[in-house]
Design a protein around this nucleic acid. Structure first.
Length: 582
RNA sequence: GCGCCCGUAGCUUAGUUGGUAGAGCAGGGGACUCUUAAUCCCAAGGUCGAAGGUUCGAAUCCUUCCGGGCGCACCA
């Protein structure tokens, strides 16, 4: 809790008002409000009430946050927000009595209240709850963002997702859709004989995808572990063990750039199906998505931007070769044989390419810049060149192709699948290829996983697999409103004030007094020689930078943690050392 | 990493060729018993991200720093 000095005028005003209400005998933070009816249910149950009509026999109890107030002397209207549904309240002096009415109208926007009353429809036609009595459930000490424009600032919206959700209920609705989608997907797969499994997130070797991993450390074992970049290799081990239809929905972690569609931690569904190839996976997907859409949205037609997307199967299958011919004017063979010409054709279509781009990268860029933007309706792009897909099984008719598809909807890659390699010797060769790339400086190259190869050597039934990231099947492609991100809590660059902060008392402070507000968990002082730590160096405030050292290639700085009462003094008493994560 | 842009009251913002800030919402006081971005009246709220510099004078121009956003690249 900040000291009074740090509060804005508005916050002081709210605290004073809260104290006043408490004096009048109001409990500021109640325990429960039960039974209660959700706003959504009230709105549907009484949708049939005619204008001006009231159902005085009914008693409703609704609860939520006051987000707007319209006073009319001896009457008042409120907007109560319950989740992402708003319902109007009407109160007047005649029903509540003067003291209760005055208290109600003096509440702050943002306060959470419970209200008992009956439903009626106003003369202007809005279904409302006529307040007969009310209870304060939680006092809000912070003013809400602007009621009409909502919270706009992107940074604040991501960092303070709670404020965003209060202020922009559309975001809450999108997240609820996403949640229902995942739930429906689970049921759909289970009904078709797939078993949900959980595989390690902490892995001794990161594998199954080409990406930079996050590293962490197991202290008891004194070994580095990696947060998984994909569950793939562990799911395949389960296939070896005999499970023939499995899937996992969970987080993957990739140490890459952060953007609206790329969170370093993201949810992904991976599915493995033994004894089939990518054709069955295509059928599964083109049947599953419309089915989920019907459950979650009640329709198989989606509005995405200006486009109407129809999910009904079958979706067209287009080979990469035919897509290249159509959009680039070159076949795959031509591109492979003459990358220079492919580069020229791409440049001619104003796609930026670099001289060192390989055949695989050129195909990738052509897909991304020329093909996907033009493929609006659900489509399977199939039969990728082998250079793009080191883990896929080769095509029976063309050794330079693999059995792989990507499903795209409205130009977005929704899923990626292939018939999986199950020859351990072949797999070993491809790992070794990756090892050479690693040696050549490719940070994303896959590590050779001996245990995984051993599993394959026992024999894995031929499987096909599907991977689908949540950005593909969440709001942006399922709903027309772009809400920024599909994540409940988007990752942000940590702020110095939000970074994990540890402090240990120094001699000086243990002799004097502890700072009034030491950072929480001020217990351990992590070894500063470990990567990724740096000093907090806020210029004047809680700490001051005292040294800048260099440890290996990592610049390190440690700081003195000051008792904040000592601010402004010439020689403040150091209360501890502070370091902060980069 | 590279490029472009931004930072003004709790929120949403205006600010002209440089003359030390003007609104709306929210908050305070008052009026109003069916409003819905309610309305009307009154008053209050700002070291214009920070520090330097140029200038008689800086929110505005310059430099540095801090915080952030958006493209591109990598990728889901």
């Amino acid at each position: 809790m900040s000291g009074e000095d740090d509060l804005s005028e508005l916050e002081r005003e709210r605290r004073a008002k809260a104290a006043r209400l408490a004096e009048e005998g109001l409990e500021l933070f109640a325990r429960r409000y039960e039974p209660r009816t959700r706003a959504r249910e009230v709105l549907t149950r009484y949708a049939g009430l005619a204008v001006g009509e009231a159902d005085e026999a009914a008693t409703l109890r609704v609860a939520g946050r006051l987000v707007a107030r319209r006073e009319h002397g001896k009457a008042a209207f409120f907007t109560l927000r319950d989740g992402w549904d708003d319902i109007q309240l009407y109160a007047n002096v005649d029903t509540l009595g003067r003291p209760s009415f005055d208290q109600l109208t003096s509440l702050d926007l943002g306060d959470i209240v419970g209200v008992q009353g009956h439903p009626f429809r106003t003369r202007r036609g809005e279904l409302s709850v006529f307040v007969e009595c009310w209870t304060l459930l939680s006092k809000s000490y912070r003013p809400l963002p602007e009621k009409w424009h909502g919270l706009q600032d992107r940074e604040t919206r991501y960092r303070q997702r709670y404020a965003d959700l209060i202020s922009n209920p559309e975001v809450a609705r999108q997240l609820a859709i996403r949640s229902r989608l995942i739930s429906a997907m689970r049921s759909y797969l289970e009904e078709r004989g797939f078993m949900e499994v959980e595989t390690p997130i902490l892995q001794p070797l990161p594998g199954g995808a080409l990406a930079r991993p996050f590293v962490t450390h197991h202290h008891a074992l004194d070994v580095d572990l990696y947060l998984r970049i994909a569950p793939e290799l562990y799911l395949k081990r389960l296939l070896v063990g005999g499970f023939d239809r499995i899937f996992e929905i969970g987080r993957n972690f990739r140490n890459e750039g952060i953007s609206v569609v790329h969170n370093p931690e993201f949810t992904m569904m991976e599915l493995y199906w033994a004894y089939v190839d990518y054709r069955e996976i295509m059928e599964l997907l083109e049947n599953m998505l419309p089915s989920l859409a019907r459950i979650v949205l009640g329709t198989t037609t989606l509005a995405v931007g200006p486009h109407q997307i129809e999910l009904t199967p079958p979706w067209p299958r287009r080979t990469i070769d035919s897509l290249m011919r159509q959009y680039l004017g070159l076949s795959l063979d031509q591109m492979r044989a003459d990358p220079g010409r492919a580069r020229a054709e791409l440049r001619g279509r104003s796609v930026e390419v670099e001289g060192r781009d390989t055949f695989a990268q050129l195909v990738d860029k052509a897909l991304k810049h020329l093909v996907w933007p033009n493929v609006i309706q659900p489509t399977f792009a199939i039969d990728y060149p082998i250079e793009l897909s080191p883990l896929a099984k080769s095509h029976p008719e063309d050794p330079l192709l693999v059995e792989r598809f990507q499903a795209t909807i409205a130009g977005r890659e929704v899923a990626n699948a292939f018939s999986e390699l199950n020859d351990p010797l072949d797999q070993r060769r491809r790992f070794e290829e990756q090892a050479r790339n690693k040696a050549a400086g490719d940070e994303e190259a896959m590590a050779l996983d001996e245990d995984f190869l051993r599993a394959l050597e026992y024999g894995m039934p031929p499987p096909a697999a599907l991977g689908s990231g949540s950005t593909g099947w969440s709001c942006s492609s399922w709903e027309s409103t772009p809400s920024g991100t599909s994540s409940f809590s988007p990752s942000c660059v940590p702020r110095s004030s939000e970074s994990p902060c540890w402090a240990v008392p120094t001699e000086a402070s243990s002799r004097s007094r502890q700072p009034r507000q030491p950072p929480k968990a001020a217990r351990a002082f992590p070894d500063p020689s470990r990567r990724g730590w740096r000093c907090a160096h806020r210029p004047l405030g809680w700490c001051a930078t005292i040294v800048a050292a260099k440890q290996g290639a990592i610049p390190l700085r440690a700081g003195i943690f000051l008792d904040h009462r000592a601010r402004g003094q010439r020689r403040p008493a150091p209360a501890g050392l502070v370091i902060e994560r980069r």
